[in-house]
Design a binder for these strands. Sequence first.
DNA 1: TGAAATGTTGGGGCG
DNA 2: ACGCCCCAACATTTC
Length: 474
Amino acid sequence: MTSLFWFRQDLRLTDNAALHAACTRGPVVPVYIWSPEEKPWAPGGASKWWLERSLASLDASLRKRGSKLILRIGNTGEVLKALAKECKANALYFNRRYEPAISARDTKLAAALRKTGLEVECADDALLFDPLAIRTGQGTPYQVFTQFWNRCLAEPAPPEPRAAPKIIPKPSAWPKSAALAELTLSPKFRWDAGLQAAWTPGEVGAQAQLRTFLKEGMAEYAVARDYPSRAGVSRLSPHLHFGEISARTVYHRVREALPSRGAARDSGLIYLKEIGWREFAYNLLIHFPQTPEQPLREKFAKFPWASNAKGLRAWQRGQTGYPLVDAGMRELWQTGWMHNRVRMIVASFLVKHLRIEWLEGARWFWDTLVDADLASNTLGWQWSAGCGADAAPYFRIFNPILQSQKFDPDGAYIRRYVPELAQLPNDCIHAPWEAPPLVLAEAGVRLGATYPRPIVEHVEARAAALAAFAKFRG
DNA sequence: TGAAATGTTGGGGCG
DNA sequence: ACGCCCCAACATTTC
């Protein structure tokens, strides 16, 4: 009565729906498959970096419970079939994934494996609410966040998280496992020092991160989250993406920590709303499976995006000449993550100031973010480009100077990630090209040499974007 | 989860 | 005292 448990984006033992079911049934062989067929959105560089560490952490947790993680490389269907035979397993358990290509592959795979006599059990685990159940009165999917979230909150609360199984019943014999290094997830040359310093992948790190946020961040979240230099946000996104902590755990721990009234309560509820955006993103991905590549608002397929390889490269490398934009892009490059306010600003800059297609931005984020998630990434970029559900209107163009003055008033964030500007005084650091030559010289800044001049002029680029979008709108 | 332009109001300086 | 102007602060409209 041995089962296979197939780990994917649920790399945890606590509150793992399908794992719990498998352990109740009998001996379990936990397996992770590194599979070449998971395209076109195969994990990017930063995701692979995270995955390697998360798998190591998962293996360690399993070993504490008398089990271990079996790693395999190859076509998922073939690996599972072979492994079931090897282990004399008669059941397969896994949690559902919602990415269109993966989900279609899984449906086929489950049918094929059932034909071989395997019992296949797939659980809904990643989301708070059943994405197929949340619909408007007309039975259509929601396309407006607030209505979607209100509807979710009218549902019964998601179930309380379950404790991790005390032991994972082990099989009489273990099948062979590939070595973690054979998955070749680590970068070839060591660009990962910044990621290493910033993160603790794995379930233990995820739980520690949540505890810290509940204790130190949540009460101030509503205000502090707007300031990228502050530790004002939860930083749970990569942990949630890899399923190292369940959304149910976050939901219930936050609710338990909520005061009965006051600003701290509102702040916690605003944080939960962000978990709601994650649900909304999955809702959209499930109902509009073409959106990772195609704009939800179909006529945007004809939008005249600029072909601007130089601009794209400057944006990617954090060399646009706009300090806040560059700080964000460099935070991304160095740490595998970017503060959300800055994500909105750099995205607006790419699609509005440079008028480069949002998909270019989505692809770059996909490769560089440790929290790269097909649902959230798609929603975020289509929101910014104005071609998605509940999207920013075309005329909403972030002013990178103004945003910098408002949300990084003392330039702390810029100084951290754009060190060549660190010596500039506060009133010059947001727009160094306007600084008096003497001030620049004293700060050791030579525009065009140590730091680029702006690659586009804000007022001009804004006007051009408005004209292009307005013309397109007709 | 915007920014900029335009309109309105009201206080204070001043002839 | 009064009217006029200036301008900051705030509100509304427009992109």
